[in-house]
Amino acid sequence: MKTPKFTYHAPRTVAEALDVLAEHSTDAKVLAGGQSLVPVMAMRLASPAHLVDINRLTDELSALEVDDAGVRIGALVRHARLERDEAAAARVPLVGQALRHVAHPTIRNRGTTVGSLAHADPSAEMPTVLALLGGHVVARSVRGERTIDAADFFVGPMESCLGYDELAVSAWFPAPEGRFGTAFDEICRRHGDYAMCGAGVVAVLDEAEQYVSLKLSLVSVNDVPEVLDLTEVVRGTAYDEVDHAALGDWVRDRIDPPGDLHASADFRRHLASVLTKRLTREAAARAITTTEGARA
């Protein structure tokens, strides 16, 4: 359980980091929190020849900015810091709701949210949240900078569209528009484990408390986070007249989850249905009763 040998780089600026990545390209890997990369290397599932440690780039990559439109985080914002940020929680509550389910607090002290996105694990919470909110990742390389929408960012299990020479420098989690409520939960064998199934929901209601839109995304069900749009099923219906169990059935009939050691495909379908029923109700109730959707 020791990592293979590698050459260690500790750049002092982002520009320096990008130079190293450009030089070593396919042989290099970025080290941020290391909560996924280090065990993957220790188990010899990855053996990059060059490791680019970005942890010293705090001046350039530690920003956490919240404005009316949403939350932007730099690549060195640890899960724990984002989770505790009250302004972020007030503006985009789904982020904090999901972060509480990311591993254990000790892991969240070190792991970074942008790193989790780049790792693109289908069992991870934050890629699902980014997809559900329609956020984006900003990637930089010596070739320049580009903004990648969540819908394009994840291309396969454990695979993002980041180029070998690119560094994900920040991520953007937009706040839903209108009178919204969100909810996130997952079902695990033990709290803190990978979810057998998880789900996030964003519900938007109008002044008459009727649905304007309803979206859901699942964890541990698809190879890449997929957003299920239930708007057509509920549009114009008052939130308390919706048959939430029927929404669960609707979702169950539209997914094709994998079966594995942790849960069979049928069990995952069942869990997705249960979570849909619970969370759609919870998200809509929050849109009504809390001020989280009260955007002036």
Binding site: Y8, A10, L31, G34, Q35, V38, P39, A42, L51, D53, N55, A80, P105, T106, I107, N109, R110
Partner: peptide
């Protein structure tokens, strides 16, 4: 690490500089 619990098996010693 700086007062916060971290897994020392998931951190390279060189990152603790």
């Amino acid at each position: 690490l700086d007062g916060e619990p971290v897994r020392s098996c998931l951190m390279l010693a060189v990152s603790a500089e």
